[in-house]
């Protein structure tokens, strides 16, 4: 059994203040650009570019956030994106688990070849395959309107290589004796996957889910091509709207970037707690 409370002796190193001494400067390096982003999002447009820069805007323009959510329609874009990433993530978890199980835990003849095939699908950049894909989806009538979401959702349900590969790597790390024992007991492969492998993969499943959400959150290319109606825009498309031909509304864009990051950060905070408890319930010894 393991949790952050009963940490084993072997993991402890040095007193607490030493750990803080290591953590604090590192965190500060990552934090400063973020603080800069938030500070800029609270500026007036004419305060964004002044040298030397204004570090703490006074008075802070809190209404930038409200403008973004209400006036610029980000409330709606957020709901669209949350709905989209939920469907995509459920599909990703389903397909990545099945496929990765086949590539990591079942012995079959063409397994390695299949694995290379899976990886090879990651190697061509999206904007090369999007032209033939677009003409295909278009013939199927899946462009624009609500059907326009299908090209964004379908690939996830059939499995994206990145997530399959990730799951495979984690599944390979699980001792085979566990599934061998279950096989002896007459458990089916699906049973082994559901009862033994999946519970052990919880940190990996969480990572996959989180990554899938991030990917949906930041993808611009696919939504730009398939979603044509502003009603159905995702946050990434909304963000692009601040970049005018001549002027970029940086303060609004950064306010939107900050505010749209919040749901992902909430998911992260919830998920990272699980990372700590992780497999403590599974009881491998």
């Amino acid at each position: 059994m393991r949790s952050d409370l009963d940490e084993p002796v072997a993991l402890r190193s040095g007193p607490r203040w030493r750990r803080q001494l290591a953590l604090m400067p590192v965190a500060l390096l990552f934090l400063i650009p973020l603080l800069w982003m938030i500070s800029t999002s609270l500026k007036r447009h004419d305060q964004v570019f002044t040298w030397p820069p204004v570090l703490i805007p006074n008075p802070a323009q809190w209404h930038n956030f409200l403008d973004v959510l209400v006036k610029d329609g980000f409330g709606r874009y957020l709901l669209n994106t949350i709905a989209l990433s939920t469907v995509v993530t459920v599909g990703t978890l389903f397909s990545a688990t099945l496929t990765a199980y086949s590539l990591a835990r079942v012995d079959w003849k063409w397994r390695n070849a299949a694995f290379l095939l899976v990886i090879s699908t990651m190697l061509l950049p999206d904007f090369v395959t999007i032209i033939p894909l677009f003409s295909m989806y278009q013939k199927l009538g899946l462009v624009g309107g609500v059907p326009g979401f299908l090209p964004l959702v379908l690939p996830a349900w059939f499995g994206k290589a990145y997530f399959i590969f990730l799951m495979r790597q984690f599944m390979l790390g699980i001792p085979t004796e566990l599934s061998d024992a279950a096989r002896m007991d007459g458990c089916s492969e699906l049973g082994i996957l559901l009862r033994i492998v999946l519970p052990l993969c919880r940190p990996a499943l969480l990572s996959v889910a989180l990554f899938s959400i991030i990917a949906t959150w930041s993808d611009v290319l696919q939504p730009l091509v398939y979603l044509r109606d502003e009603k159905y825009f995702t946050v990434s498309l909304g963000l692009a709207q601040f970049q005018g031909r001549y002027v970029t509304q940086w303060e609004q864009m950064l306010a939107a970037a900050s505010v749209t990051a919040v749901p992902v950060l909430i998911v992260f905070v919830l998920a990272q707690k699980k990372f700590v408890r992780g497999i403590s319930t599974t009881g491998i010894k």
Partner: peptide, 26 residues
């Protein structure tokens, strides 16, 4: 009017059968 389209989105759409009727180039 559909705004905020970059050259890539315009070209992709024009190459298909469901093209916009009028395009204002960027």
């Amino acid at each position: 009017v559909v705004g905020d389209k970059n050259a890539q989105a315009m070209l992709t759409a024009m190459s298909g059968g469901d093209a916009p009727d009028v395009v204002m180039s960027t």
